[in-house]
Amino acid sequence: MADENRLDVQVETQEQTIIVRPVGDIDLACSPTLRSELMRVQGERFVRIVVDLSAVPYMDSSGVATLVEAMQIALRNGTRLVLCGLQDRVRSIFEIARLDSVFTIAGSQEDALTV
């Protein structure tokens, strides 16, 4: 039986940037998978981590908490963490939690690579 709590997370490297692209809903069932992947890439000390959320139709506060933790670790490491491609439903939870001004949010992955 497939592990229904897993999230597909695609990872791509472009020079000093690593792009993390989760695919699917991020809720309490799947956020541990994203957390593990973000923890892993934080250890590789890239200059920039781009989290491309364009393939994430839904996120709850467990997903938001995962990204807050990643942002705080990136800050300590001197790494820039940029979110991009937020769909409306995902953007709204950042706005509700008043975190849209805390994160660096770019419109597209291309924009995120220039931040």
């Binding site: 938001v64 807050v68 939690a97 805390v102």
Partner: peptide, 10 residues
Amino acid sequence: VRPGGLGVFI
């Protein structure tokens, strides 16, 4: 700003 603790607020 910290991870977690947002559920009741939301």
